[in-house]
C-alpha cells in the first residue's frame, strides 16, 4: 500500500449511498449473470433428447419361456427380469412363514404400478416382470429359485444380491434384516397378446411412470 496513492475523498456532491448502491448493483448483476451462465453447462449433463427418445417400449416373446425359467432383457439400459413362475412357487408367495419375514409384504411402498399391487406383484400371476436392480446400491440380484441350499434351510427361493447379501422373494419383495430397503421395482408393462409382453407401456387406462417409484 505504501507505493499507492490514497484516492482523494469523494466529491461532496456524490453521496456515499449512491456510490454504494451502484457498486452493490454492479456486483449483484454480474454475480447473477455468472450464475445464469452456469445453468446451460449443468443442464447439458442431463439426459439428452435422443437418450430420452430411445426409451421406447420393448416387446418380449414369452412363448419359449418355460415354467421356472427367467429371461433378462435390456430396457432403457436396465436389466428387466421376466419369470414364468411355477404353481409351487406361487404358493410360497402366500405362506405366512415367509410373509412374516418380509419388510413390505403388502407392497405398500410405491415400488410398482397399481395393477401390480397384489400378492403376486404382476398382471398375470405366473408372469413376473421386475427391474433387476437391487434397491440397496444398484447391483443385479441373482435368480435363485431353489428353496434351501447355501442360503439356509428357510430360503423359499427368490433373489440374492451378491454384493451385500440382500434377499428378495419370487415377487421381488425384500426380506427383513438385509441392507436393501425396498422391494424390487415393477416397470410399466402390458400384454399385447397371450405370449407377448410389452415393457415400458401401461395397460390402457393406467398412467404409471417408472420415475415415480420410491427408489430405483
Amino acid at each position: 500500500m505504501a507505493d499507492t496513492a490514497q484516492p482523494k475523498p469523494m466529491d461532496a456532491h456524490v453521496s456515499a449511498t449512491r456510490r454504494d448502491f451502484l457498486q452493490i448493483a454492479a456486483t449483484v448483476v454480474t454475480g447473477i449473470g455468472a450464475a445464469i451462465a452456469a445453468w446451460p453447462l449443468i443442464d447439458s449433463m442431463n439426459a439428452a433428447r435422443d437418450t430420452l427418445a430411445a426409451g421406447a417400449p420393448l416387446d418380449v416373446d414369452l412363448s419359449h419361456l418355460q415354467p421356472g425359467q427367467q429371461i433378462v432383457v435390456l430396457w432403457r439400459s436396465r436389466p428387466i427380469f421376466v419369470v414364468n413362475r411355477t404353481a409351487p412357487e406361487l404358493k410360497s408367495l402366500q405362506e405366512a412363514a415367509v410373509l412374516n419375514r418380509l419388510r413390505d409384504p403388502e407392497s405398500a411402498v410405491d415400488q410398482q404400478p397399481d395393477y401390480a399391487k397384489n400378492w403376486h406383484r404382476s398382471i398375470k400371476p405366473e408372469y413376473l416382470v421386475l427391474v433387476g436392480i437391487c434397491t440397496h446400491l444398484g447391483c443385479i440380484p441373482e435368480f435363485t429359485p431353489q428353496p434351501g441350499g447355501t442360503l439356509g434351510p428357510d430360503w423359499p427361493g427368490g433373489y440374492f444380491c451378491p454384493c451385500h447379501g440382500s434377499r428378495y422373494d419370487l415377487a421381488g419383495r425384500v426380506f427383513q434384516g438385509v441392507p436393501a430397503p425396498y422391494n424390487l421395482p415393477v416397470p410399466p408393462y402390458n400384454f399385447v397378446s397371450n405370449t407377448v409382453v410389452r415393457i415400458g407401456e401401461n395397460p390402457a387406462g393406467s398412467s404409471f411412470d417408472l420415475n415415480d417409484v420410491e427408489q430405483l
Partner: peptide, 21 residues
C-alpha cells in the same frame, strides 16, 4: 438484454469509482 443492462450498470459504477481519479 441482460448484457446491455449489466454493461450499463457497470459503466455507471466505473464512472463513479473513477470520478476521483
Amino acid at each position: 438484454i441482460f448484457l446491455l443492462v449489466m454493461t450499463g450498470i457497470l459503466y455507471a459504477a466505473k464512472r463513479q469509482i473513477w470520478a476521483d481519479v
